[in-house]
Simulated assay, not measured.
Amino acid sequence: RPEAVKPMGTVIFDEVEKQQSQILLSQMEQYFLHTGKGRTRSRLIIPEPLFVHSDLTSMIQMADLVA
């Protein structure tokens, strides 16, 4: 019997200055590696976030509107 397919998500952020991106990555690492909820939730996402320019990506703009 094949295992049920588990949905996976990805984390997408608007690209900012490199230093700010590094701070965000550090915070994500702390959360996903050093907290119980973070370890549980890390099974549901692709572990490497994507950084995009929101002014160039219509789907990011759509997510901003929905939020």
Score class of each variant (00 low, 15 high):
residue 18 K to N: 09
residue 37 K to D: 03
residue 47 P to F: 00
residue 59 M to Y: 15
residue 46 I to P: 01
residue 8 M to N: 07
residue 54 S to C: 10
residue 31 Y to D: 04
residue 9 G to Y: 15
residue 7 P to S: 07
residue 32 F to I: 07
residue 36 G to I: 08
residue 18 K to P: 10
residue 60 I to K: 00
residue 26 S to H: 08
residue 23 I to L: 08
residue 51 F to W: 01
residue 1 R to K: 11
residue 22 Q to K: 10
residue 41 R to Q: 07
residue 23 I to H: 08
residue 25 L to P: 01
residue 44 L to G: 05
residue 63 A to K: 10
residue 30 Q to R: 05
residue 8 M to K: 08
residue 32 F to R: 00
residue 2 P to I: 11
residue 1 R to G: 13
residue 54 S to I: 10
residue 46 I to Q: 06
residue 61 Q to E: 04
residue 50 L to P: 03
residue 29 E to N: 12
residue 48 E to G: 06
residue 44 L to P: 00
residue 63 A to W: 12
residue 19 Q to G: 08
residue 11 V to S: 04
residue 40 T to Y: 06
residue 3 E to D: 09
residue 43 R to M: 07
residue 52 V to K: 02
residue 4 A to M: 07
residue 36 G to N: 05
residue 5 V to C: 05
residue 30 Q to P: 00
residue 46 I to W: 09
residue 10 T to Y: 10
residue 31 Y to C: 00
residue 31 Y to E: 01
residue 28 M to R: 03
residue 66 V to Y: 13
residue 60 I to F: 14
residue 20 Q to P: 03
residue 23 I to T: 14
residue 34 H to E: 02
residue 40 T to H: 04
residue 19 Q to N: 09
residue 15 E to R: 04
residue 5 V to R: 05
residue 55 D to A: 04
residue 13 F to N: 01
residue 19 Q to T: 15
residue 9 G to L: 11
residue 31 Y to I: 04
residue 54 S to R: 00
residue 50 L to T: 12
residue 18 K to T: 14
residue 21 S to G: 03
residue 19 Q to V: 15
residue 62 M to F: 13
residue 7 P to F: 11
residue 13 F to H: 02
residue 58 S to V: 15
residue 18 K to I: 13
residue 44 L to Q: 04
residue 12 I to H: 06
residue 34 H to P: 00
residue 48 E to R: 08
residue 26 S to V: 10
residue 54 S to T: 14
residue 33 L to H: 07
residue 17 E to I: 11
residue 19 Q to E: 12
residue 60 I to D: 01
residue 28 M to T: 04
residue 42 S to F: 03
residue 27 Q to P: 05
residue 46 I to C: 07
residue 19 Q to A: 14
residue 21 S to C: 09
residue 28 M to W: 00
residue 2 P to W: 04
residue 46 I to M: 09
residue 48 E to I: 15
residue 65 L to V: 14
residue 21 S to A: 11
residue 14 D to S: 08
residue 45 I to R: 03
residue 52 V to T: 11
residue 33 L to P: 02
residue 10 T to P: 01
residue 24 L to W: 05
residue 35 T to I: 07
residue 9 G to F: 15
residue 64 D to T: 14
residue 6 K to G: 06
residue 55 D to F: 12
residue 13 F to T: 08
residue 38 G to N: 02
residue 38 G to L: 03
residue 19 Q to P: 04
residue 1 R to I: 13
residue 62 M to T: 14
residue 34 H to C: 04
residue 50 L to V: 15
residue 63 A to R: 11
